[in-house]
Design a protein around this nucleic acid. Structure first.
Lengths: 191, 191
DNA sequence: TGTTAAACACTAACGGTTAGGTCTATCGTC
DNA sequence: GACGATAGACCTAACCGTTAGTGTTTAACA
């Protein structure tokens, strides 16, 4: 899986990382709107086109690391112990994700996101993709025989729980409270 | 409330309507991405700046009519008969909204929206604003004494129901099914 | 009738994003 | 080690949504 990466790939990864680091630093220093793509490119000493060959948009520069969010949710469903019920497994994973996103070190980034409508919108639209992936995972699990609608709704509810908890005063308690509601909703769809 | 509108207001409304109609027609004819703001302005015979003085963004041109969506949800909560429970009242309103958005005449517009990521994203972000207004209405209703978290979560669930139903094969049945889940979730938060 | 402010126009720009074409370091293979 | 293929990066120039700045018309109202 982790075969020795060639020099080309290493250089590419290094460039990508340099861009992401530079961008985040500038955004935190001067504010998201006050930093242009051309600034980021200049400071990272790359061409503007190079920035866009690594990141699909300016907003994506801020969410550089969150590529495994989706996978973690899907795995929490698919790889859970044979007899563990669905909702507790999801709650555990969401608790972990929420802790990660409300950790001490993430506070400045979170402030950055909350301070920019463009970033908030982008995050929401990422979440929607996660909900679709999660819905597919729910529909695919042979242990859960629920309607496609129930799967899609539950997936969105779970994403809602994450979104609400990340912005709540007490993220842990909020996650638990919303998951209580999700459990009731899910149980009501039992065949 | 409906005082005789002066000529000025009538002209303004006419300009706005002309822009919206022209834009929608061009979008349907050539596709959203293939039509620029400059095209819309030229075809409507107004300046580009005039377009933006009436509409906040290109996407807003497509959602011209949906300004009362938010109000309808809030009123469905606040103005419901004294003894009608919350969830059925909301379900009735969402059913009506879903019917409106899946009506025969709305089909081309819906296809337009689903065909453009920008429009989908914009719609989602509108929905989020609705969820916040609805959450506030829930929290403000003296007949419902629930935690802020329960209100916020329920509001998002309701918006999820709407979003899922609008895209579902059988919108009515989907609304009912998701609202069954929402009812269970809401009841589980009874004090 | 004259004053005021809203609505609109025009130009020019800004900032994110992309297309076109080139250069070069790396890779796989001989 | 030499050799062609190609990925990765570069540069320039533009496109498009959006906004600022600056008039000009016209309806509303004293």
């Amino acid at each position: 899986m982790t075969a020795p990466p060639g020099r080309r790939e290493r250089k590419k990864a290094a460039t990508r990382q340099k861009i992401a680091d530079t961008a985040l630093r500038l955004f935190l220093e001067r504010g998201y709107d006050a930093v242009g793509i051309r600034d980021v490119a200049a400071e990272a000493d790359v061409a503007v086109t190079t920035v866009f060959s690594h990141f699909a948009s300016k907003e994506a520069l801020v969410f550089e690391r969150d590529q495994d969010f989706e996978q973690r949710l899907v795995r929490a469903v698919a790889d859970r112990p044979s007899e563990e019920p669905l909702v507790p497994a999801l709650r555990r994973e969401v608790q972990a994700l929420v802790r990660h996103c409300t950790a001490e070190g993430s506070a400045p980034v979170r402030r950055l996101i909350e301070g920019s409508p463009a970033l908030r919108e982008y995050e929401e639209s990422m979440s929607l993709r996660y909900a679709q992936a999660l819905a597919a995972a729910l529909a695919a699990d042979p242990r859960l025989s629920r309607s496609a609608t129930a799967c899609r709704a539950t997936a969105r509810f779970v994403i809602d729980a994450y979104a609400l908890a990340c912005r709540a005063d007490d993220p842990g308690a909020t996650t638990d409270e919303v998951f209580g509601m999700i459990e009731a909703a899910w149980d009501s769809t039992a065949p």
